[in-house]
């Protein structure tokens, strides 16, 4: 494989890894607060439809983005009601919301556009267009790093950079602020927060809300950045891959970046069977590449490579004990 091909693949890695990264960080906030979120997929899908549809109607990707966030938030609120207020089963709530999203997105898109559940192809300002970072062209001549900067780093849509920026911001929020301290505490031992006089319910709603916001960005990127418009089931299990990445990253932000980029890389590779055959000398089955994120996650979950310990209070509704 030559350098140019590698750069191409890394470029796709970043594009494909971005929605995974945003969703993974969404899951990170939610699960760190003790609320399991299987519904990343549904929230992303909802956001993709809302943003795609509104961007198509309004012609503005920014209004579309807001609509995407709103759609995702709506689902986040329902999940919060079910799992925080009514102390229901968080796993079942997530599964249910994924189905609702899967159906309702097609219903609405079909009603609006009559194109078989798709939104029209987005063009111009209705899409996030590539941003060329400063000096991308002029630095291209610098050996090795120049093309890397120009090909891989530069030339993505704004949300890609937002996602990358979200990693240090998440890290900072989590480990450097009062909110982060309380968030981490409430996912580990809500009683510690409660006895300290801080509201468990409010913290958890905040976390679920942030998850809604980030899933909104992820979904909007799918429909208005990665692709030009919404298509039915367009998230194609990315919410679950993000969940896998979250476990793989052991619920930590920087590791979430690495894990999602690894999984994004696998997705990018799966698109280039020719390259794989070149490297390995034989055809690695594409399904194996597709399954690899899940297989790796199971291996991690089973404790064969370190131990993935989820937040201790995860999945348990908090009931004040006597």
């Amino acid at each position: 494989m030559d350098y140019a091909t590698l750069l191409q693949i890394l470029d796709s890695t970043l594009r494909l890894g971005t929605p995974l990264l945003l969703a993974c960080l969404a899951g990170l906030f939610s699960e760190r607060s003790g609320i399991f979120d299987i519904g990343l997929e549904g929230k992303m899908l909802m956001a993709a439809m809302c943003s795609g549809a509104v961007a198509a109607l309004s012609g503005s990707v920014w209004i579309g983005l807001l609509a995407g966030i709103a759609g995702s938030m709506m689902f986040a609120v329902v999940h919060g009601l079910a799992s925080i207020t009514f102390r229901g089963n968080q796993l079942i709530s997530g599964v249910a919301l994924n189905f609702v999203a899967s159906g309702i997105t097609v219903l609405v898109a079909q009603d609006l556009f009559h194109q078989g559940g798709r939104t029209p192809a987005l063009t111009g300002n209705a899409r996030f267009n590539a941003i060329d970072l400063p000096f991308a062209e002029s630095l291209r001549g610098v050996p090795v790093l120049g093309p890397f900067y120009a090909e891989v780093v530069s030339g993505h849509s704004a949300l890609v950079y937002v996602a990358l920026l979200a990693v240090p911001v998440t890290w900072w929020l989590l480990y450097r602020t009062r909110f982060g301290l309380r968030l981490r505490a409430v996912g580990e031992n809500p009683a510690s927060v409660d006895t300290a006089g801080v509201s468990v319910v409010r913290l958890r709603y905040a976390a679920v809300g942030i998850a809604g916001l980030l899933c909104g960005l992820a979904g909007a990127y799918m429909a208005t950045g990665l692709q030009a418009g919404f298509g039915r089931e367009m998230t194609a299990g990315r919410g679950y891959i993000a969940l896998a990445a979250l476990i793989f990253a052991k619920w930590r932000p920087w590791q979430a970046l690495y894990a999602t980029m690894l999984f994004g890389f696998l997705q990018a590779l799966a698109l280039r069977p020719d390259v794989i055959e070149n490297i390995f000398g034989f055809a690695v089955p594409i399904p194996l590449l597709d399954a690899l994120p899940y297989i790796l996650t199971v291996v991690v979950l089973a404790g064969f490579v370190g131990k993935a310990i989820p937040p201790r209070a995860g999945g348990e509704p908090y009931v004040k004990e006597r």
Partner: peptide, 12 residues
């Protein structure tokens, strides 16, 4: 897809 919505809501 209406049926998926109903299915999801019933589960919810």
């Amino acid at each position: 897809e209406l049926r998926i919505v109903v299915q999801g809501l019933v589960i919810l």
